[in-house]
Simulated assay, not measured.
Amino acid sequence: MSQTEPEPRPGSAFSWNEDWSATVVGLVLIGLVLVGAIPDWLVP
């Protein structure tokens, strides 16, 4: 098995992955509950 590291993409220091996606979705849900767009019982 090769021990080489994957090459970083030039010009991109931020990689969008599932952790960041989940964070953004969670913040959007909290924001929607706070402004009253969706009821708080709907979000677990």
Score class of each variant (00 low, 15 high):
P44H: 10
S2F: 03
P8C: 01
L34T: 11
V35S: 11
G36K: 01
E5Y: 05
Q3W: 06
E7G: 04
D19E: 15
P6K: 11
V24K: 07
W16T: 00
L29Y: 02
F14C: 03
L27G: 09
D40H: 08
A13G: 04
M1D: 10
L29W: 01
G31A: 14
I30C: 10
W20V: 03
E7T: 09
P6Y: 05
L32M: 15
R9V: 15
G26D: 13
I38N: 00
S21L: 14
V24N: 02
P39I: 03
G11L: 02
G26F: 05
T23E: 15
S2W: 01
V43Q: 02
T4P: 00
E5Q: 08
Q3E: 07
V24Y: 10
D19S: 13
T23Q: 11
L29Q: 12
L34I: 15
P44D: 07
V24S: 01
V28N: 09
L27H: 08
T4R: 12
V33P: 00
E7W: 04
M1W: 06
V24T: 07
G26M: 09
V43E: 00
E5V: 07
L34P: 01
P44I: 07
S21D: 14
W16E: 04
I38V: 15
G26R: 14
I30L: 12
W41N: 14
A13L: 07
D19L: 06
G31N: 09
I30D: 15
M1T: 12
V43C: 04
V33M: 13
T4I: 06
P44E: 08
D40G: 09
E7S: 06
V24P: 00
I30H: 10
V35F: 02
L42R: 10
G36A: 02
L29M: 14
G11F: 02
S15V: 14
V35W: 01
T23L: 11
P10I: 06
N17P: 00
E18C: 04
D19F: 05
G26H: 08
N17I: 01
E5P: 07
V25S: 11
W16Y: 14
T23V: 13
D40R: 10
